[in-house]
Amino acid sequence: MERETALLLYRRMVQIRKFEEKLYQLFLTRPMPGSMHQYNGQEAVAVGVCAHLNRDDFITSTHRGHGHCIAKGASIRALMAEMFAKTTGCCRAMGGSMHIADYSVGMLGAMGIVGSGMPVAVGAAWSSQYRRSGQVVACFFGDGAANEGAFHEALNLAGVWKLPVVFVCENNVYGFSTHYRRVTPVENIADRAASYGMPGVVVDGMDLRAVFDEAATAVDRARKGEGATLIECKTYRYMGHSRFEKAAYRSSEELDEWRKRDPLVLFRDFLLGSELVDAGELEGIDADVDREIEDAVDYAENSPDPKPHDYRQYIFKVNDEFPTHHQKES
């Protein structure tokens, strides 16, 4: 990994971490709209995979989408404004945390229905294949989603059509309250790839470099037209399932074990050990990101609230040539 890449990826992970830490505080200290699902602990996955994607490559995201947005390069200001339900939010206050996404950087949406992004990713990959655009699709989903019918149908189609998609299973051990081994009869979700004629690999999802390397192979394979890959990243979510969920179903020892291998700490130690960078540079990035997050909060706070009926413009795309094709609201 080159120095510049390493620094960018470090910055991305810090951005995700601090973005969410800030939101956690905000939710504690002031009324915030809706809820959120936090990504803390899983930063290396989104960042390691998106490192290989171009701006015009696609991703699909989930209810736990903040990290995917930042890793794909979405504007922190627009993300924060969406969390505040402001008109300057990336989804114009229509989606909130659960559907946070930015099409301008290739996000096809954050689906709140578990597993539902997977067939969509397959469709985008098909389109890329058809258009010979060379675009690759990365599809993020959880261990829980791997038990939805949509997972199996999507992988099968991608396998049989040899589509340029990388399925990224973020196995963070739990689907809501349920340990994945209570609901999944195989140790590795990656093993399921065999049924769909694609490689399945297991990777340490806390280790940015490991994710980075596996994703390189998978994206390269997709780009060359050789088909899909299923990468299972073993990772962990530090927070409860959602903002107000306390995660009493897991032990603090378990959490501590995983935290010892925190993706930011691991990568930081690696960088310092490799002498690619010095501590001052990393601290500089940390401080920089702090400012960036403060600026985003300022921006969000000072942005206009939507008006009650703003939603109307988003129900249908109105085509002026065919004005009668669109029902007026009752």
């Binding site: 709209p33 206050a93 229509m94 988003y314 009752s330």
Partner: peptide, 16 residues
């Protein structure tokens, strides 16, 4: 509810 999905922002949700 008028013929619309439910929007996120509280002011819009209240409106529908």
């Amino acid at each position: 509810v008028p013929d619309t999905p439910i929007p996120f922002a509280p002011v819009m949700e209240q409106a529908v």
